[in-house]
């Protein structure tokens, strides 16, 4: 299972037949394992990693530190939910340390993100403070380096 997930995490476009050969399983086994992983929400989806900077799409990403007052019985979950339900929020993590939530927000411009923070995020009941950090350049994401891969510089023939 773990190896199947490792392989799919790197390349979700491999089909069941290819996966079966790579992992020395039958195609049916692979199919049923994948179904199981999907049903249990272990596999949450299949996506493509895109470097949007290569396109003309305008986009900025900010990392926002949020401090909140936990609520009785609910801890941080309720406030977190009110935050992560906004589609602008791409990721939301509960943190240890000096603040409580990391919220990743994407927008077209810095202004748009700043407005989202001041109009939507900060006024939420229980949010004590926010600190917004804009991402200037992405070097690596999900284990993938954004710069062009270095060419294979090996001699083409070595005995």
């Amino acid at each position: 299972m773990e190896e199947l997930l490792n392989v799919l995490e790197k390349n979700s476009r491999l089909n069941e037949e290819q996966l079966a050969v790579m992992l020395d399983k039958s195609t049916d086994e692979i199919k049923s394992q994948i179904r199981e992983l999907e049903n249990s929400n272990t596999i949450l989806g299949y996506r493509t990693l895109i470097n949007w900077e290569k396109t003309s799409k305008e986009s900025v990403t900010a990392l926002i530190e949020v401090r909140i007052t936990p609520q009785r019985d609910l801890g941080f979950d309720k406030v977190a939910e009110r935050i992560y339900r906004f589609p602008q929020v791409k990721a939301c993590y509960l943190m240890s340390g000096g603040f409580d939530l990391t919220v990743v927000v994407e927008g077209k411009t810095m202004k748009e993100v700043a407005l989202f923070v001041s109009e939507k995020l900060a006024p939420i009941d229980g949010v004590l403070s926010t600190a917004t950090h804009f991402i200037l350049k992405k070097f690596k994401e999900s284990g993938v380096v954004f710069e062009k891969k270095e060419d294979d510089d090996r001699e083409a023939l070595v005995l």
């Binding site: 294979d152 090996r154 083409a156 023939l157 070595v158 005995l159």
Partner: peptide
């Protein structure tokens, strides 16, 4: 754009 399967060292 030849693909070399002729190399005796790790990629």
């Amino acid at each position: 754009d030849a693909i070399s399967l002729g190399v005796g060292e790790p990629d």
